[in-house]
Computed example of a mutant assay.
Amino acid sequence: MDPQLQHSVAESVATVVISHPEKRNAMTAAMWRALPPLLGELADDPAVRVLVLTGEGGTFCAGADISTLRGSPQEAQGLAVRAEEALAAFPKPTLAAIGGHCVGGGAQLAAACDLRFAEEGALFGVTPAKLGIVYPSSSTRRLVSLVGPATAKYLLFSGELIDAERALRTGLVDEVLPAGGLGKRVAEFARVLVSRSQLTQAAAKEFADGRTDRDAHWAAQARASGDTAEGVAAFLERRQPRFGWSVPTSG
């Protein structure tokens, strides 16, 4: 099977699977190109409330397919950055489900997700120093925001791999699951996210990502949506809320 990005939507959760198992799911140029339009399609799908990014066959992504770097490393890096930025800009919650290797471009993609759950035995690395590549400034800032400058420098200067437990301690991942438990926990947590207010999630995502000019916008959205009244009523009536606000489509 050719390297590809597979996707499915079930119970309001879109799952995107990086599929290139013979190279530990390394991303080819074609795969980098395919990710932004796929994300745009899923963002505009009203049935999608949460996105999960994972890899086929027990490993997440071992980075960029090095054979694609021979022609133009700068072009390949540009493709990776555009894919990373498209993932970071996805307007609904995103969760990386990580097993095996999460290295190089794989770490870029994982860092661009809102949350990262990993399985015991997963390995993480940011490896441009092994190839003489200047890591993009936007990717560096995103990494620093997750793990702090000291750990970011450790990863970038050395290119060394760290295990899931250290990734958890440094803030690179949010949960570490026992072997065999990743899929169940991710599905469980995705259902939690689906049940919550998209209004709250969308506003929180913007604020957490540094937007400082949208307070009035989100206050107006909250007033118009009726979600707060519904949430309070549902709490008092001891029932699940039926939130009405949804992320607008780009069309």
Score class of each variant (00 low, 15 high):
residue 7 H to Q: 12
residue 31 M to W: 06
residue 37 P to F: 03
residue 38 L to P: 02
residue 40 G to A: 11
residue 44 D to E: 10
residue 49 R to N: 07
residue 51 L to V: 01
residue 52 V to D: 01
residue 53 L to T: 05
residue 53 L to I: 09
residue 65 D to V: 03
residue 67 S to M: 08
residue 69 L to V: 05
residue 72 S to N: 15
residue 72 S to T: 08
residue 73 P to W: 05
residue 74 Q to V: 11
residue 79 L to R: 03
residue 88 A to P: 00
residue 95 L to Q: 03
residue 98 I to G: 05
residue 99 G to A: 15
residue 103 V to E: 00
residue 105 G to T: 00
residue 109 L to Q: 05
residue 114 D to V: 01
residue 116 R to M: 02
residue 117 F to A: 12
residue 126 V to A: 12
residue 128 P to I: 06
residue 131 L to R: 11
residue 135 Y to Q: 03
residue 138 S to M: 07
residue 138 S to G: 11
residue 139 S to L: 15
residue 143 L to K: 09
residue 150 A to G: 02
residue 155 L to D: 09
residue 157 F to N: 11
residue 158 S to I: 02
residue 159 G to R: 09
residue 161 L to E: 15
residue 162 I to D: 11
residue 162 I to G: 11
residue 164 A to E: 15
residue 171 G to I: 00
residue 177 L to H: 12
residue 179 A to W: 05
residue 187 A to I: 01
residue 196 R to Y: 05
residue 200 T to L: 13
residue 211 R to G: 03
residue 211 R to W: 06
residue 213 D to F: 05
residue 216 A to I: 06
residue 220 A to E: 14
residue 220 A to P: 03
residue 221 Q to A: 15
residue 222 A to K: 02
residue 225 S to V: 07
residue 227 D to Y: 08
residue 229 A to L: 11
residue 231 G to H: 06
residue 241 P to W: 09
residue 246 S to A: 12
residue 246 S to E: 12
